[in-house]
Design a protein around this nucleic acid. Sequence first.
DNA 1: TTGTAGGCGTTATCAG
DNA 2: CTGATAACGCCTACAA
Lengths: 342, 342
Amino acid sequence: MIDRRVTIKDIAMRLNLSTSTVSRALHDHHALKRETIKKVKDLASKLNFVPNIAALNLLNKRTNRIAIVVPEITNHFFSMALTGIQNFIVSTEYNLMVCLSNDSYQEEVAIIENLRQIQIDGLLVSRSSRTKNFDHFRQLQSYSIPIVLFDRDCKGLKADKVLVDDYSGAFQAIEYFIKSGCKNIAHIAGVKNVSIKNNRLQGYLDALKKHGLPVIKKNIVYTKGFNYEDGIKPVELLLNSKHPPDAIFAMNDRLAISAMYVANKLNLRIPDDVSIIGFDDEPHSIYFTPALSSVSQPGYGMGMLSARILLKKLSEKGGLVNDFRYEVFKPELITRSSSKKI
Amino acid sequence: MIDRRVTIKDIAMRLNLSTSTVSRALHDHHALKRETIKKVKDLASKLNFVPNIAALNLLNKRTNRIAIVVPEITNHFFSMALTGIQNFIVSTEYNLMVCLSNDSYQEEVAIIENLRQIQIDGLLVSRSSRTKNFDHFRQLQSYSIPIVLFDRDCKGLKADKVLVDDYSGAFQAIEYFIKSGCKNIAHIAGVKNVSIKNNRLQGYLDALKKHGLPVIKKNIVYTKGFNYEDGIKPVELLLNSKHPPDAIFAMNDRLAISAMYVANKLNLRIPDDVSIIGFDDEPHSIYFTPALSSVSQPGYGMGMLSARILLKKLSEKGGLVNDFRYEVFKPELITRSSSKKI
DNA sequence: TTGTAGGCGTTATCAG
DNA sequence: CTGATAACGCCTACAA
């Protein structure tokens, strides 16, 4: 057991040098004898010296710490994004703290307050779907902590943003349905009054409009949550109604899968009786029968870019740059056998 | 923008006190006038004072930082475990760094070296399945950094361990098959010579033995990886062989699902022609047709307990306690329609 | 080419 | 009851 880490002081004493010389040697200061530098470095590596980060942080007034706040990670998109972020961060001097809001506004606020106390250099956020007020983020920004939003926008918040074009993804899905002959298209929109992913609903509406199809109220279905089980009842109601839809676009794969599940139970043929398209393209979706069509989002790349943007901003720390990136990734519709061929 | 955080010095100057008094007041030192304490605290909260963590860390020779190293998080078990860990940690003074080894020994070693430099107070680890040498962990321990292993054991490494009884999970699955009348039971064992989860294979073997069934070599199937796509070919071979099995136990749900996929393609009836049981009980497994039977592991609880054990150890930092916890969670077989009723 | 001194923010010890 | 001082480990003017 090593009970005390070695410091530059230890090295200095052993070598009869001052700590400043040791410090300089470790940084290859030009005005030092080669010999001294070598002597110091050799001993340092022999002793397994690593600089005390706390001391450096104190000196440099930074923390080397960035945090990411996400609603959850038991979800393919977020876990891929986090993987992308982490795989980028790992090659830098920063370390990443992961915080889960469990999609709760209150928890999110508490986390942000905690991060303020804990002190971080920068923040990546995908806000909870319940968050409507962004003052907690603004407060953090007031400490000169840059924020990069990814996937979930905060309208009105000035920050770097890395988003996905939900509108386009939904639009593509609906147009595909229409081209394949569907006329009565339903949308499982998730939780009502939870604005997150509203653009998917908007894409649905606009695509119908563009092709002269009526918007039928009962075809827009809300759920109590975003999980598999939350889709069952609403979809049963929908498919058992008088004029059941011939196509269902779900705002995520989980709800799409519960739609498939219900359709199967009701002995409806997919896609002949009802076409289904999801959103997220979770890796298991392809193994369902029929394989689920879905809109695919580049989570890994989005995560990586978000991290890159944040670190860039941190390296330009000097100027409180008021110039924000706004990056929008285009999602891609992947058609499989749960939707009719065009 | 606040460009400099407020320190106890600022408070001291404003109040004409010394920094020591301010420090004491903030800690409710008994020998201070009530009045002084109130004065200090009021100003502190008015100024939004938070202590500088780097300074504290320097003083206390700790980092408040613990890290977790896992192979991946795009997997239900690990994301649940991480959620459990995080939800526990969030209520403490510690913060959690998440590191992904991508199931690579090399990356794992690099991460550990990085953590040594970065400095952490404690570590949670689920090792990569390729890791056979544990010296990198031992090196970290030599700096008095406690390690808690979860889910994946490192035989011979002295550390706290929170494991799942893989052997029992597999045994339960096989016994269930046998009781339901299956006689020719195959096992998809994952990657050959990758010792991780070997106990599942052992459970399979011992259950067969106990019930007097022969171990047939070709019924033990290895794959190139642990993902859906890795199961397809091996299962095709298996099910197209001369004496195809009447039951398949897969070492995880992904491989079980690819087995179901192949069986469906081959127009085999599940479970009548072939029963299938997986391991992990991923939340979507229930929505397949038929619903997948699986061995369920309490990831969330295991994560939480691991974190609790680590923090306990950290709080006892004084004594280099050589007394390690060894906790084994029993997994539970959940039978659904992919396996015959008993 | 190297050493000295001071400071980053906080707390503990010792003094008064 | 409160203040001065030293220390945590490192870096950087300024000196020599």
